[in-house]
């Protein structure tokens, strides 16, 4: 049961963004200012400093890494700089 490709990626593929702190490279796509998709690979996970120093929180679902703030800022920067295209949708 092969999973189909995402029709949205045909029009606008994911693009590489590097983290300004650790240089981890991830694939990113923004479909609007409010939406961001990030595809990591094993190298990026291994490189991420915040990820390595993350402590689990409390509660049954605590064992996950929510966010790298440096990467988030890097993606933000790339979007604002125009390096990462953002469809200029009105909403």
């Amino acid at each position: 049961m092969a999973v189909r490709p995402d029709n949205r990626l045909l029009d606008a593929p994911m693009r590489p963004v590097r983290c300004r702190r650790c240089s981890a490279q991830v694939q990113v796509r923004k479909s609007s200012w409010q939406q961001t998709s990030v595809q990591w690979d094993a190298d990026a996970v291994a490189a991420c400093v915040e990820r390595r120093s993350a402590q689990p929180g409390s509660g049954p679902n605590s064992n996950f890494f929510e966010n790298c703030s440096e990467l988030r800022a890097s993606i933000r920067g790339a979007a604002v700089e125009g390096l990462l295209p953002v469809p200029d949708a009105e909403s």
Partner: peptide
């Protein structure tokens, strides 16, 4: 199994983003 994130955040309105882009430009 590789990490994939999808985020939607509407707490920051579009106008703020646009202003930032304009300032940047």
């Amino acid at each position: 199994v590789e990490r994939f994130e999808y985020e939607m955040d509407t707490t920051k309105p579009n106008e703020a983003w646009r202003r930032e882009v304009e300032e940047n430009l």
